[in-house]
């Protein structure tokens, strides 16, 4: 049992991201209102971003910006890689955040269109209204 606790304590960031992702996935699948599904989608994508950023962390390391002697023109002391955090996950997640915002924008525009046509955002009502129409 203590082994299990030690394992969780050493890797708690992964447990956090899985829990957050499952909350988002549940909201996307089970909720009735389209806006709540959108929020769930955002939580889902944010959990994956959290996972990636947590990959780049190193204990006792600072942000990936090289300051002081080494910076900009000066070639002072050698740069120790263990002092700086991993920049690559930050870069990848900049892209992923922008993509998730763009998807949220497009999905919201689609929700506005649905609301303009049907005056409701509840999925069961929409299904009922659609099945009343002539089947195409």
């Amino acid at each position: 049992m203590t082994e299990l606790f030690m394992l969780i304590a050493a890797k708690y960031n992964y447990c956090l991201y899985v829990i957050l992702m499952m909350i988002g996935l549940y909201a996307m699948i089970a909720k009735n209102n389209l806006m709540k599904k959108l929020v769930g989608m955002n939580i889902f994508q944010t959990a994956i971003i959290l996972f990636y950023v947590s990959i780049g962390f190193k204990h006792n390391a600072t942000i990936p910006i090289i300051m002081g002697d080494h910076g900009h023109g000066g070639h002072g002391a050698a740069i120790n890689a263990a002092d700086y955090m991993n920049p690559l996950p930050h870069v990848l997640m900049l892209t992923a955040i922008v993509v998730s915002v763009a998807t949220l924008g497009v999905a919201m525009a689609l929700c506005v269109k649905v609301y303009q046509r049907y005056q409701t955002l509840e999925e069961d009502e929409l299904r009922m209204r659609l099945s009343e129409k002539i089947k195409l």
């Binding site: 996935l25 996307m28 389209l34 599904k37 989608m41 889902f44 994508q45 998807t103 497009v106 999905a107 689609l110 929700c111 269109k113 649905v114 046509r117 929409l126 659609l130 129409k133 195409l136």
Partner: peptide, 16 residues
Amino acid sequence: DRGPISALNYVFVGVI
């Protein structure tokens, strides 16, 4: 009538 709703369903599945 059905274009935006089909697109929204596609959004959710596609994002997953």
